[in-house]
Design a protein around this nucleic acid. Structure first.
Lengths: 258, 258
DNA sequence: CGTATCAGTTGCACAATGCGCAACCGTGTT
DNA sequence: AACACGGTTGCGCATTGTGCAACTGATACG
């Protein structure tokens, strides 16, 4: 463990936590002489890892941090990260698994693993999933803010596919509330008779939900008896993907909607 | 300049640039012995500033970077940063200046400085600016992607306020193209007869436009003769705000729309 | 107006710390 | 099996980072 570097990172973390700090404060928090802190800050500042807040004169994080973060985000490929995980999930559950993403105000299927089963249900990558009657769609909607939801659903057509389809905004809203509470969404023959789907949310580095993974299968194979176990497995998989895209571990569910 | 820290930050930057690098590659790039690089990476990894990409086995940036970045973004208060700058701008130009933000698919006035002039034109903070006939609105729209624009304008009503109001999508589209090329937007009596407005975009840390600043004044005070000078001053102010929220200097205009 | 107080930076001398070297793993390749 | 290659560990040296204390500069206060 390299002392100076270790201390520098500690400094960054403390600054991040308190937004801005002075040399003396930092030196007390770290129990390090302020001359040392001052010199570490000099080097950090030379690389724009911290900057001096004109106004308070204290140190805040520098924009280099943002640029590093951008680069990391750009290199994060959810599909690549999720692939081995949903592959494994599909094997364990014996069902097709889709990875869906919220983009352009729609929920798209962005990747898929087909079940090994002879008669497998499958979506098409690129397909848009409806908000009101797909588990993956509802799952993502459940984590939007009320205002966003209102905007999304303004003018949305609640096409009825089966007798179980939710066809009005109010019902959907309270349904979404429930999904967020329980942490998973079910589509029980809401789009096609005989088909049942389950989906769970994937949390990103800021605890927002922009992805979901879902399974779909013939109603009789996705049985109530197995459901609990399946959901647990799915949640484990989702947690792994979440971690892979930077979700702080253990914080799932404490999510601000957006 | 503290050597070890300096080297560590160099390592981060190189990794960011190339997405992932190995110990040996890094040691060559920095001309530092690989044992040293390895030990620096150990410390960085202990703080999740880098992580090992399972798959390639090489080092990539760690999620701590993202969390630091989030914290910085949360502490960035555009209004606070912009205030002294638009205040100064308003003095120099003698016009009211507004700061507008794109949010919830609308352009809102989020701050304002009223001109010292006796008859000043002013908006209300919180007000929503129309897309098709406000300079601040057009200015922000001009940097949306075509797909986003289409979504935004689907069902948008091109209310006619004056004989100069743009009332159809095609005209607006080519007008926006021009705005992006020239870097500023003008509203020439498009919303109110006798009122002229000018707006310029503010670029954020990833070169996206989510804010604009605009002036509005009686047509005769915002004269064509002064326009060039005014626009230059506005662009300077916008650049300063942009820098204040992390825009990499000198990169204005090379923007990906979104 | 001078003095006290506090935050931050600089000079210096010491030794702790970080460094390069070389040896050592562990994997994959021919 | 031998080799090549990327990464980690042990060790001894001196470079580097460190604490101390003095210095600067701003702000408050009698």
């Amino acid at each position: 463990m390299i002392q100076s570097l270790d201390r520098a990172i500690r400094i960054l973390s403390h600054i991040a936590e308190r937004n801005s700090l002075g040399v003396t404060e930092l030196s007390q928090m770290l129990s390090v002489n302020k001359s040392t802190v001052s010199r570490l800050l000099d080097t950090l500042r030379a690389h724009d890892m911290v900057q001096i807040d004109k106004g308070t004169g204290k140190y805040r994080l520098g924009f280099r941090i943002l640029h590093l973060g951008e680069s990391l985000k750009n290199s994060l490929n959810v599909i690549a990260i999720a692939r081995p995980i949903i592959l494994d999930l599909s094997c364990r559950l014996g069902e097709s698994v889709h990875l869906c993403a919220f983009n352009n105000n729609c929920v798209y299927v962005v990747d898929q693993v087909r079940s090994s089963r002879a008669y497998s249900l499958s979506a098409t990558v690129g397909m848009i999933e409806p908000f009101h009657c797909s588990s993956v769609g509802k799952c993502i909607l459940a984590y939007r803010r009320p205002e966003t939801l209102r905007a999304l659903l303004a003018g949305y057509e609640f096409t009825r596919y089966t007798e179980h389809t939710i066809t009005d905004e109010d019902t959907l809203m309270s349904h979404l509330e429930q999904i967020r509470r329980q942490g998973y969404a079910i589509d029980d023959e809401e789009m096609s008779i005989g088909v049942r789907c389950v989906a769970v949310p994937v949390f990103n580095y800021r605890n927002s939900v922009y992805y979901s993974i879902g399974i779909s299968g013939p109603k009789h194979t996705v049985r109530a008896s197995d459901l609990e176990k399946s959901i647990r497995l799915m949640m484990d998989a989702a947690k792994e993907i979440s971690a892979g895209i930077g979700c702080p571990s253990g914080s799932t569910g404490l999510t601000e909607r957006e």
